Amino acid sequence: MPVRRVPPRTLLPRAACAAALLTALTGCGPFPDGDAEADGPALSAPVGVTAQAGSPTSVHVMWNRPVSTTEITGYEVYRGSVRVKELTAQQHMVDVTGLRAKTRYEFTVRARGEDGSLGPVSRRVSVRTPATVAADRSAPGRPEGLRGHVDGGRAATLTWRRATDDKGVVSYDVYQGTTKIHSVDGGQTRALLTGLRPGTAYRFSVRARDAADNVSPASDTVRLTTAQGKDEGPGTAPDDFRAATRRADGAYYIDLKWTPPQTGGEVPAYQVYLDGEQATTVMWGDSAPQGGSAYSFYIGKEEGARHRVKLRAQLPDGTWGAFSPERTVTTGG
Rank of each mutant, 00 (worst) to 15 (best):
residue 9 R to Q: 13
residue 174 V to T: 09
residue 248 A to L: 07
residue 198 P to V: 09
residue 310 K to Y: 11
residue 115 D to T: 10
residue 124 R to A: 11
residue 151 D to L: 15
residue 56 P to L: 04
residue 151 D to W: 12
residue 92 H to P: 00
residue 57 T to G: 13
residue 86 E to S: 15
residue 271 Q to K: 14
residue 39 D to T: 13
residue 15 A to N: 04
residue 318 G to W: 05
residue 26 T to G: 13
residue 249 D to M: 05
residue 207 R to F: 09
residue 154 R to V: 15
residue 306 R to L: 06
residue 62 M to K: 11
residue 149 H to A: 14
residue 302 E to H: 00
residue 117 S to M: 02
residue 158 L to P: 04
residue 300 G to Q: 02
residue 58 S to K: 09
residue 82 V to H: 06
residue 224 L to E: 03
residue 159 T to C: 05
residue 311 L to M: 03
residue 137 R to A: 07
residue 184 V to D: 09
residue 138 S to H: 13
residue 144 E to P: 00
residue 328 T to V: 12
residue 22 L to R: 11
residue 204 F to K: 08
residue 332 G to D: 05
residue 42 A to I: 14
residue 4 R to K: 13
residue 23 T to I: 01
residue 157 T to Q: 11
residue 239 D to Q: 12
residue 97 T to D: 14
residue 240 D to E: 13
residue 266 E to R: 04
residue 16 A to V: 09
residue 286 D to K: 14
residue 71 E to R: 07
residue 310 K to N: 04
residue 257 K to V: 07
residue 152 G to I: 03
residue 196 L to N: 03
residue 266 E to T: 14
residue 260 P to D: 11
residue 268 P to N: 11
residue 178 T to Y: 08
residue 308 R to G: 15
residue 160 W to M: 11
residue 160 W to D: 09
residue 251 A to C: 06
residue 167 K to G: 00
residue 247 R to E: 14
residue 227 A to N: 05
residue 7 P to Y: 10
residue 125 V to K: 05
residue 111 A to K: 03
residue 288 A to G: 00
residue 21 L to Y: 04
residue 327 R to T: 04
residue 9 R to A: 14
residue 21 L to T: 07
residue 126 S to V: 07
residue 116 G to K: 10
residue 265 G to M: 01
residue 97 T to S: 14
residue 197 R to E: 08
residue 264 G to N: 06
residue 31 F to I: 12
residue 141 G to C: 02
residue 152 G to H: 05
residue 147 R to L: 13
residue 108 T to F: 07
residue 239 D to G: 07
residue 259 T to F: 04
residue 325 P to R: 01
residue 105 Y to T: 00
residue 247 R to S: 12
residue 176 Q to N: 09
residue 292 G to K: 05
residue 208 A to G: 03
residue 8 P to T: 05
residue 323 F to A: 07
residue 270 Y to E: 06
residue 176 Q to V: 01
residue 127 V to G: 06
residue 140 P to F: 05
residue 216 S to M: 12
residue 62 M to G: 07
residue 280 T to R: 13
residue 14 R to E: 06
residue 38 A to M: 09
residue 283 M to I: 08
residue 18 A to N: 05
residue 34 G to Q: 12
residue 79 R to G: 03
residue 191 A to H: 04
residue 296 S to Y: 00
residue 124 R to M: 10
residue 307 H to G: 07
residue 70 T to A: 12
residue 44 S to V: 01
residue 179 T to I: 14
residue 210 D to M: 06
